[in-house]
Every structure is written in C-alpha cells, then in structure tokens.
C-alpha cells in the first residue's frame, strides 16, 4: 500500500516494528480520512438538499411522507415559488418585494462602504502618520464589538427620530458594521501594490489623489470587487438590525426579515417558506462561489503569516 503522499515510500529497515506501525497508521488514517470527508459532505450538503427538495413539494405531500429524501416526480410542484413570490395583495407572501428591498439595501451599503473604506484603507496601509496604531486598534475593537450593545442606543435614537421602518437609516447602521472588515480586506491588498509604481506616477506630477485614483485603485480592483461582494453578502444576510429597525413596515422587509417573521405563522405552509429560503440563499451562494478564491484569500491572508 502506498501512502497518499506524492513521495515514494522509504523503508526504515533497522526498525521493523516502526515500519509496521507506520503502515497501520497510514492505512487507518486513510480510512478515517474518507469517513470524515463523507461525514462532512453529509452534514453540509443534506440540509441544503432538503431545502431545495422541500421547496418543490406541497405541504400535503410532506405530511404524508415526511421521511422521504428523494423526489417522486408526480408530486413535484413549483406552485410554492409562485405563492412565495406573489405580492401579498394577490394572496402571496410578497417575496419579490422583499428581494427588491434586500437588493437596494445591500447595494447602497456596498457603495457607501466602499466610498468610506477605500481612502481609509489606503491611509492605513500606505501613509505614515502618528496615531496609526491607535486607529488600527479602534477598528479592531469596532469589528469585535457586540452588536447587541450597539443595538440599544441606535434603537432608541431611531425610535426618537421616528425613523424605524424605513430602509435608508439602516444603510448608515450597516456601514458601521462593514467598514472595519472592509478596511481590513482592502489594506492587505494595498500593501501588495509596489510603492515604486506609485512613486513613478508621483514623479510624473500626479497629485496624491491622482495617484490613488489612477494607479492604486485600478491595481486593487480585484480586491475591491471581492470586498464589495463580501459587504453585499453581509448586508443581504444581516438579521438583527433589520429585525430592530424594519419590523414596523412589512413593505420594507428584507428577505431575511420576511422569512423570519412569516415562519412563526401557522397559516403559511413550511414548504412555501422553504421556497423562500431557496430564494434567500441562492443569490448569496452563487455570488460566493463566483468569487470564492478572492474572498477566502482576502479573509485569511493574515493566517499564513502565523
């Protein structure tokens, strides 16, 4: 049996016992490894498979055969999707509107976050000034800060101003949540842009802003795209602040909030809401896997340094 590594097996002839222990361990670990992979595939994929499967079944079919994990062609239906997407006036659950709200909120959050954090990240990674360390610490603290603590004053403030129930104030709340992580991701990339490129542009007479605009930002475009996608995902997935600030007005609910509010009701069949879950999940999963490499590298780039 050859071990799974690329290097040819070398025997250590003087140690017969060790040799066999090596073999036993290698064989056992190989089996264990495949069992573990199988375990992870089951626990990660089955819930999503179940989500998609149920979204195409009627509630009656589910109640009749709750344990069935394979589709039977006769009972598959897309009426759940029609029901969940149709507006409430037409007797549906209004998810089309929720999707529009989520998209507006997420896109505005992305734009605002980038406007704030690109110059911020550039300053933190490129410019030397006193207080830089403290600024770093502040961002880290904000990033790790319990959002429930923040929720209280913001809830009180928006209640006082009568702004609960509308989308735009929420964008500002979201920026405060996304700017630290956005700066962290962008900073790592700005640091990889060679200084000499910028200096060359500066020698040619470009101002600082000109250098950033014409040289650094275009070079960092992949990073900016990755960050934009990540911020979009955060905003699309966000729940707590949407729950606190948008619950008042169902016309402004996001998909997350809509699904959470409606899942408590007995009248709406679970399979219809399952279709809602698919609608909520699909855009995010597609976006993530389009940009997976960029995103995971951007997030973990600190880890390799150990």
């Amino acid at each position: 049996m050859t071990p799974s590594y690329g290097v040819r097996e070398r025997t250590a002839p003087a140690y017969g016992a060790r040799w066999s222990r090596e073999r036993v361990e290698t064989a056992a670990l190989r089996v264990l490894r495949w069992l573990t992979v199988a375990f992870f595939l089951v626990v990660t994929l089955v819930p999503f498979y179940y989500m998609v499967l149920l979204s195409f079944r009627s509630i009656q079919a589910l109640l009749l055969a709750p344990g069935r994990l394979w589709p039977s062609l006769g009972e598959l239906t897309a009426s759940t999707y029609v029901d969940v997407l149709r507006s409430m006036d037409e007797g549906g659950q209004g998810f089309l509107l929720f999707m529009r709200n989520s998209a507006v909120l997420a896109v505005l959050t992305v734009i605002a976050t980038l406007l704030v954090s690109i110059p911020g990240a550039y300053a933190v990674s490129r410019l030397r000034f006193s207080g830089r360390r403290q600024v770093h610490f502040l961002f880290l603290a904000v990033y790790l800060f319990p959002s429930i603590v923040l929720a209280i004053p913001l809830f009180v403030l928006l209640s006082l101003l009568g702004l609960r129930g509308s989308i735009y104030p929420l964008v500002v709340v979201y920026i405060s949540q996304t700017v630290p992580v956005s700066i962290y991701m962008l900073r790592n990339y700005f640091e990889t842009v060679p200084r000499s490129v910028e200096e060359a542009a500066a020698v040619d007479g470009a101002s600082r802003l000109g250098v950033v605009w014409r040289v650094s930002i275009p070079l960092a475009m992949p990073a900016i795209t990755a960050t934009a996608l990540y911020v979009f995902m955060i905003a699309w997935n966000e729940f707590l602040f949407a729950l606190l600030f948008l619950t008042e007005d169902p016309a402004n609910w996001t998909v997350s909030l809509g699904l959470a509010r409606l899942s408590g009701s007995i009248e709406i069949p679970a399979t219809v809401l399952m279709a809602g879950s698919v609608i909520l999940t699909l855009p995010i999963v597609v976006l993530f896997f389009l940009a997976e490499r960029m995103l995971t590298e951007g997030l973990t780039s600190g880890a390799e340094k150990g």
Binding site: S256, L259, V285, F288, F289
Partner: peptide, 20 residues
C-alpha cells in the same frame, strides 16, 4: 466548496431548514 456552505448561507434560511 461544500464545507463552506453553512458559513456562507444566510442565517435565517439555515435556521429555518434546521427547524423543519
């Protein structure tokens, strides 16, 4: 990719699937 799914998917959707 499969192993990243639980982390990427919206929390409201996955909690709902677990509930069901």
């Amino acid at each position: 990719a499969a192993m990243l799914l639980p982390y990427v998917a919206p929390v409201v959707a996955v909690t709902f699937v677990w509930e069901v």
